[in-house]
């Protein structure tokens, strides 16, 4: 079970950026990576990086980040003293809830998966889900609150 303190903390400016990304790629899904720090059960986002969606065959309801791009992001985050703490994507004209596809293809246990529902081109609800478990056999998404800080807030 998720503990009470499980939480995603993000500045308003970064939250706006990932929501705007979903509006820009509508009616296709957007995707990206969140860099930051993990403090106990809290993931604190320091930066949001856009990534390309390689699923050109079905971009309206599938996303996939090129592993080569992830390798570069992982290397750069380490050089900046940050970690990959989560990912985001959008659900065009679909609720901001995880799907079975999202769960089946989620493998970063301990990271946050943020989903924004984009309705008719406008970002609607944004939710965050923590991927919990000890492996592929028992992994599960649990709702986690998003704590939004003022755009200029220093951590």
């Amino acid at each position: 079970m998720a503990q009470f303190e499980d939480m995603l903390t993000i500045r308003q400016s970064e939250l706006d950026a990932l929501r705007r990304h979903g509006e820009e790629t509508y009616p296709y899904e957007c995707c990206g990576v969140m860099l930051g720090r993990t403090e106990g059960e809290e993931r604190v986002v320091e930066a949001v990086l856009r990534a390309g969606n390689t699923r050109v065959d079905s971009p309206h309801n599938r996303y996939h980040i090129d592993p080569r791009e992830l390798v570069r992001i992982q290397r750069e985050s380490r050089e900046r003293g940050l970690d990959i703490v989560g990912f985001y994507h959008s659900h065009p004209d679909h609720p901001a809830r995880w799907s079975q596809t999202d769960l089946a293809e989620a493998h970063w246990i301990g990271c946050s998966y943020v989903i924004t529902g984009v309705e008719q081109g406008r970002a609607a609800v944004t939710n965050s889900f923590l991927l919990e478990g000890t492996g592929e056999e028992d992994k599960r998404f649990v709702d986690e609150p998003i704590r939004v800080l003022a755009a200029e807030a220093a951590y």
Binding site: E29, A51, R55, R62, H91, P92, L103
Partner: peptide
């Protein structure tokens, strides 16, 4: 890998 997506 990082992948997923909603349905319609």
């Amino acid at each position: 890998s990082i992948a997923g997506g909603g349905c319609r």
